[in-house]
Every structure is written in C-alpha cells, then in structure tokens.
C-alpha cells in the first residue's frame, strides 16, 4: 500500500507535542519532607528499544494531586493503611494467628518486600504476586478464608506492605524461572485488544505525555500501587487498573488474579524497575 505524503506531515504534527510533554513536569517528590523519590530514571536495559527514560505517573497528575501524595497527613490512602495495621495484628482463622504472630513488626519484616514483587516462588514453582502470598498466608498459615482478589481488604494490606518500601527502587527479577511468565506478560502488553484495537503500548508507550480527553497519559507504571483514586475515593490494585484499561478498549477483560494479569503485572512492574515504590500513591 502506498502512503501519502500527508502521513509524514501528520506524524510530525503528533511527534512534536509528544516530545514537549513527554518529559512531563520538572517537579520533585519528597515524601514527608524526608524521603526523596526517584520519579524519573534511565529505563531498564530490557526497554532499550522502546524507552530512554521511565517516568512515574505522578508527573502526569495535577499539582493539587501531586501535593496530596507528598505528605502522609494529606494522602487519603493512608487511612486504609491504618485499617490494615489493625488487620495485621488481628487473629484470624482456625490457628489463632495474626500476621504479626509470624512476621512481628511490619516496619521491619516487610521492608523491601513490595519492591521485588511479583517474584518467583520456589516452593510453588510459579510467579507469586503479593496478593497470592497474602492469601497463601491466610489459608495455609492461619487457617483463614482467602480474601477477595483485588478486594478492599486485600488492597489495604498491599498498601500497608508497600508503605514499608517507599523510596526504594522497584527491582523485580525477570530472568531465570520467571522468564516465561515475563515473556507472556510482554506479549499481552503489545497485543491490541477490543473493538478499539489498542494495546497497553499504544497508550502508555506510544502516547504517554499526550491527552486522551482530559486524561494525561502516563507510562502506566505500577510503582504507585495500590493507588488511592480521587474518582472513587478508594484504593485500586494493579489488576483493578489493568481491567479498567482493557475494558476501555471495548474488549472482554481478564479477571483480577488471572494468569494473564499475573504475567502482565510482572512485565509492567519490570518496565518500572528503578522508579521508587510510591504506594499508596494518589491519582485522579
């Protein structure tokens, strides 16, 4: 097929604003006046062909939203973290144990955990998300019921665990036994779905920095998850967000906790390797 000269003109017209906006704003995020967050950094090696720099979604939000995340007293997500602190210490299930019975002080034992999940679990011989590990502790360790995948109680426990790693760089492993899952996630990331026929990459790699309606497109990283969304005043998990994004392509979504979303979570997390853990971040 012959493409017209106008195609080049159109392509130029889009690439100009993309260049201007792609570097987002130049604000810096210092949490509670203490923790310096890395919100822009060199892209991990595996992205060499597609991105030079990875940028936290924080940069694409309005100043008001950005400020809310900079101080725990202003971050509405922290209420849920407090609730999860209660859960942490509550005995649940037939074995009369709480999370604290095995893990003690959450600030000690959960430091650094969020930064490396999802990760390969040797005993289970599969890639584990934090949610899978939490449900494993609940059912096997405590004799309790599993929590609903991506449900409110799960999201707030993930937020509590995430808080213990804030400021640490995302650092999920993509090689060794996790590689096959990572490859599946990568394939899904680039697969165009739905009647709008759009992939994750179409919005978050090709068009970050641009606007779709009032939405300022980010690179779609997961370092801020779970996120507190002003839109519905609650925490959203990564799988909850993926589901919304796939639905918006007029596609049949995958389910939270599905093999597809586990793989996608690993792959998307690896794209953000190097960015600081921010969860619970604030987004619109």
């Amino acid at each position: 097929m012959k493409f017209k000269a106008t195609t080049a003109i159109a392509a130029l017209a889009i690439s100009l604003p993309a260049l201007a906006l792609a570097d987002a704003d130049d604000d810096t995020l210092v949490l509670n006046g203490e923790i310096e967050m890395v919100t822009k950094t060199a892209a991990p090696a595996h992205l060499a062909d597609s991105l030079d720099e990875v940028i936290s979604g924080w940069h694409m939000r309005s100043d008001e939203t950005q400020v809310m995340q900079a101080d725990d007293f202003d971050n509405p997500g922290m209420i849920f973290v407090e609730q999860a602190m209660d859960d942490w210490e509550t005995e649940m299930g037939t074995k009369g144990k709480s999370c604290a019975s095995c893990h003690g002080d959450v600030e000690e034992s959960m430091k650094g955990v969020r930064a490396v999940y999802p990760k390969w679990n040797d005993n289970k011989e599969t890639v584990y998300t934090m949610e899978m590990q939490i449900n494993d502790c609940l059912t096997n360790g405590m004799g309790a019921e599993a929590w609903k995948k991506s449900g409110a109680q799960m999201a707030r426990m993930e937020a509590l665990i995430s808080v213990q790693s804030r400021g640490m760089p995302m650092n999920v492993a993509i090689d060794g036994p996790a590689e096959a899952t990572w490859e599946l996630g990568k394939e899904l990331y680039y697969t165009r779905t739905g009647q709008l026929d759009l992939s994750c990459a179409n919005c978050h790699e090709d068009n970050y920095g641009n606007h779709i309606r009032s939405d300022h497109l980010s690179q779609g990283h997961t370092n801020g998850f779970p996120v507190y969304r002003l839109k519905n005043a609650k925490l959203t998990t990564a799988h909850g967000r993926f589901k919304g994004c796939v639905r918006d392509t007029r596609a049949e979504t995958y389910k939270p906790g599905s093999d597809e979303f586990i793989a996608l979570e690993l792959y998307v997390a690896s794209r953000g390797n190097g960015l600081s853990v921010e969860g619970p971040s604030v987004r619109n």
Partner: peptide, 18 residues
C-alpha cells in the same frame, strides 16, 4: 479506531462492559 469494521478483533467486548 476503525469505525466501520466488525471483525478481526482480539477479545471483542460487549461495548464498555468488559
């Protein structure tokens, strides 16, 4: 998006219901 195409899609959904 293709506004007058009805096939060849991956996981086509029922509008925006998911």
């Amino acid at each position: 998006p293709a506004y007058f195409v009805v096939d060849g899609f991956t996981r086509p959904g029922n509008a925006y219901t998911g």
